[in-house]
Design a protein around this nucleic acid. Structure first.
Lengths: 237, 237
DNA sequence: GAGTGGTCTAGACCACAGA
DNA sequence: CTGTGGTCTAGACCACTCT
């Protein structure tokens, strides 16, 4: 019954299946033993076999079809979790010092495009902040952000040198949805000046839009100097 | 018992918990009802309550601590699945035509750095390919790849205009591990020429390393013109 | 109809945290 | 000690696929 083992039975089954896939013995499209077969082979209950296969399906390693069976997934995709964190947390995690310079923090009237992006009427009040984040004194991010007052009325009263906009928003406007788009670009004149880089230096640009409940909370453009920032990730079968 | 509903009981519980978190009623750090409490409230068995909370924990919405309880997770991170797909598949999915131009495909001797990256001895045989991928005739990716012959001995016999390197490798060297790094950069002279862009045009560079079983299968540098490619993603609580 | 997965139950034993 | 989650069982009913 594999009870005394430190490793749970469903984990043992998952590992066993994973190994057969990783070794190439079972190729994409091949059938994986059914829950009934696993019950016999490992002397486990069906719920345990089900959990093992269900979790492998959630991880994308196998596909399951009711009535048909479980098969090795077409591994034509590498997928990994891309985590977008609060920049203060990210810098602090590296053991470095995060500082913020506030270039602008004021109320404005929404242009038609901005109004549409935030789901407001043209000319509605919006909060606008422009900050530069530095890691150990070196500028690493230029943040240009518009915030919907309905989602975070106290936004402009925040001391952004102590609480990052992301953190303020997360605490006051619970996040329900977000989308982002990452591109390569050249910095604007202002971005280059504030980041201390040449205008010809390529940058990563991340446009982000967050939704909180019924409101679009914020739209932001984050620019990172290409030589000082990268997005890394890993995938494990 | 919520049996006739089209929606499974554990999904109903998950939705209910999600709503309380999204609405801000339960804030990060707050306790989520225990499995026992959910059993009563929804008239479900403990296994069902357990599954609901376990899946929410896997999604990162709550954290669970044996003996202590379940709490709303600190939502200080936005995470979403970043999927890296075979470029042919990706272009085809958009309903566009994918074509490949082969600039180089030959056997070389590994430089010390390359040998180390591939886990080979200096001067060992390696396969080297350089391709340009186009979408509807427009170049969108410059692919410079080194392949470990031990992982894919037939690599150079592939017709890369029909089978992409990624696809060949996935079929012959089952993927067990991969890592990537995304940066902004300027193209090399050759990359700019082959992609048909100016040398000053910023590009996204993705360095990728794949492992198959005991071997490092391949290391590649993929360069995308910044104006023709972006990485987009979404997150839903 | 036989085989498959999708869901659910009512118990059970265990490890761990906190009072 | 009580309450919590972590795991597991031996059944059950259902919907679906394939033959």
């Amino acid at each position: 019954m594999a009870k005394d083992e430190a490793v749970p039975a469903y984990e043992q089954v998952k590992t066993w299946v994973r190994q057969h896939i990783a070794s190439g013995e079972w190729r994409p499209g091949d059938a994986v033993p059914s829950e009934a077969a696993l019950m016999e082979q490992f002397a486990i209950s069906r719920m345990t076999a089900n959990r093992a296969l269900r979790e492998l399906a959630a991880e994308g390693l196998v596909t399951r079809q009711q009535g048909s069976g479980t098969r090795v997934a077409q591994l034509h995709r590498i997928s990994s979790r891309l985590v977008i964190r609060d920049i203060h947390e990210e810098v602090a995690e590296r053991g470095h010092v995060h500082t913020t310079r506030v270039l602008l923090a004021e109320e404005e009237r929404a242009t038609p495009e901005l109004a549409q992006a935030l789901g407001l009427r043209k000319g509605a009040r919006v909060f606008h902040t422009v900050l530069v984040h530095a890691e150990n004194g070196v500028p690493i991010q230029h943040e240009d952000r518009y915030v919907n007052p309905a989602a975070a009325p106290d936004y402009l009263n925040t001391d952004f040198t102590r609480v990052s906009p992301t953190l303020h928003l997360l605490e006051h406007a619970p996040l329900t949805e977000a989308s982002y788009c990452i591109e390569a670009c050249l910095p604007t004149a202002e971005e280059a000046r504030e980041l201390g880089i040449r205008r010809s230096e390529p940058c990563l640009s991340m446009k982000r839009r967050t939704v909180s409940g019924a409101h679009v909370a914020s739209v932001a453009r984050l620019v990172y100097p290409g030589t000082r920032y990268s997005i890394a990730g890993q995938f494990q079968a």
